[in-house]
């Protein structure tokens, strides 16, 4: 039976953490662990979720969990999976890396793990900048978004297409998701958990602090990103791409951007340009 809000594991595996109020990334981690259960080993590189979850003696993961060096998420996962397999332990080794940890510094190790076909679930919680260090541009910061290292013009580059990169490296399964649509996210994690080989889920996870939105708007913004067509829900499976849904209200793109403080550098022309990038 498919996992849903009705039969999701009632236990909380990521609880008491120190993430900012309304943090989308912490929701992505919390829900994934409720799907994967107590035999998930959570592997987190340096980043927001490790910073807020592992301050000895306050340890917020109630399953086996660890921090890896920043660039080493996928490679540490590989070692854990191999070691547990040697011990005959059945487990899900799941990584939670941010956008910088995935698309920038962790990309090489990620490519290696995909290339080896290691049996792992890698989840990128994408808040579109280096939020843990105070909002600096990453390879997944979108066009026009102001960060402390793109302070005036906003990012002049578009996001890397991580899903395409992961697929081209030979992943068994790749999917994009949004914390605004948890049923879809849950379904994709469940699907990933049932497959052998390397699985990748890229979940957009708004950061109220870095995006310039209210703490209660995280879910709304995450939904809207999908609805206006800025964040497409896709799956790559058996070598085929599938679009999960068409944008339901593309006309609201500009409205979606202007309600986020980080896009305040965009003037009318630039806002129009975002439709093309």
């Amino acid at each position: 039976m498919a996992v849903s809000v009705k039969n999701l594991d009632s236990r909380e595996f990521f609880f008491g953490h120190k993430a900012c109020a309304g943090c989308g990334g912490s929701l992505a981690v919390r829900i994934a662990l409720k799907v994967l259960g107590a035999r998930a080993v959570a592997v987190l590189p340096a980043g927001c979720m490790s910073a807020v979850g592992f301050n000895f003696p306050q340890l917020a993961f109630s399953n086996n969990a660890l921090i890896t060096p920043f660039a080493a998420t996928a490679s540490v996962m590989t070692g854990i999976e191999a070691g547990l397999r040697r011990r005959g332990e059945i487990a899900h080794v799941v990584g939670f890396a941010g956008d910088g940890g995935t698309a920038d510094i962790g990309l090489q190790a990620l490519s290696g793990a995909i290339d080896r076909g290691d049996n792992l679930i890698y989840i990128c919680y994408d808040n579109e900048a280096y939020m843990n260090t105070g909002i600096q541009k990453s390879g997944l910061t979108p066009f026009g978004a102001r960060t402390t290292t793109t302070p005036i013009t906003g990012s002049v580059r578009r996001k890397k297409d991580m899903l395409a990169i992961v697929a081209a490296n030979g992943a068994e399964y790749a999917a994009s998701a949004s914390v605004g649509y948890l049923d879809d996210y849950v379904t994709k994690i469940e699907k990933a958990a049932a497959k052998p080989g390397f699985k990748y889920i890229h979940v957009i996870a708004p950061c109220p602090t870095g995006w310039g939105i209210k703490t209660n708007e995280t879910i709304e913004i995450a939904r809207e990103a999908v609805d206006v067509g800025l964040w497409r829900l896709r799956e790559y499976e058996n070598g085929q791409w599938l679009e999960n849904c068409a944008p339901s209200r593309p006309e609201d793109l500009v409205k979606h951007l202007t309600r986020q403080g980080r896009f305040s550098a965009l003037d009318t022309d630039k806002l129009e340009e975002t439709k093309n990038v």
């Binding site: 595996f13 609880f15 008491g16 120190k18 000895f56 003696p57 306050q58 340890l59 917020a60 993961f61 109630s62 399953n63 086996n64 969990a65």
Partner: peptide, 12 residues
């Protein structure tokens, strides 16, 4: 650096 999982000493 190995310690009991889910060990909470403060609230939020």
């Amino acid at each position: 650096t190995a310690f009991e999982a889910g060990y909470l000493v403060t609230q939020n």
